[in-house]
Amino acid sequence: MPEEASANPFLEEVIAFPGGERLKSCIQCGTCGGSCPSGFAMDHTPRELFAMILAGMREEVLKSNTFWFCVSCYYCTVRCPQEIPITDIMYRLKRLAIQAGYYTASITGFSETFVGQVETYGRSFELGLATGHYLRHHPIQSIRMSPLMLSMVTRGRMSFTPKRIQGIRQLRAILRRAKELGGAW
């Protein structure tokens, strides 16, 4: 769609995914913000953020920490009277913020290490990964973490080398094609 065709190009950008259209029907009731378990850590509640999107405040929205604190609990989604897929909008905003370069490495680092591991091995080790991520981004905290890591190791709950799946080439080919197709998804 040509940019000038829409009064609010940012809104169009946000809702460009299956089901996203419903955001236009937000009635600002605040049910989402009131339901959000991590709302206290967000600089704008979900409701506020949606008002900002509807007002076209692209930069303020993409620079906010709201969606990074979304833990995908789906409370807002099941409670929203307008059936807006709020959790999916939060995912969408994360992707847009990354594309726009508005994020801090320590926040996306976790997602990226995770994804890197999946693409290399086809499997992930959430804890082995946590160590790698922590060492890279929170050297101080990882010292505080170490008793935890130690007890996980002694109980056999932690591994350091992910298992590689047999079809790793097939998986990579699929992911490569998916990335090429990209599109509005």
Binding site: Y91, K94, R95, T108, E112, F114, G122, L175, A178, W185
Partner: peptide
């Protein structure tokens, strides 16, 4: 047989189509 990681919630934060393709495999 030979299942792969489903990507947890992390994949959906980065790229949508690869996230779906990962699960669809």
């Amino acid at each position: 047989d030979d299942w792969n990681c489903c990507g947890a919630t992390e994949y959906f934060s980065l790229e949508l189509l690869p996230a779906y393709a990962l699960v669809a495999r």
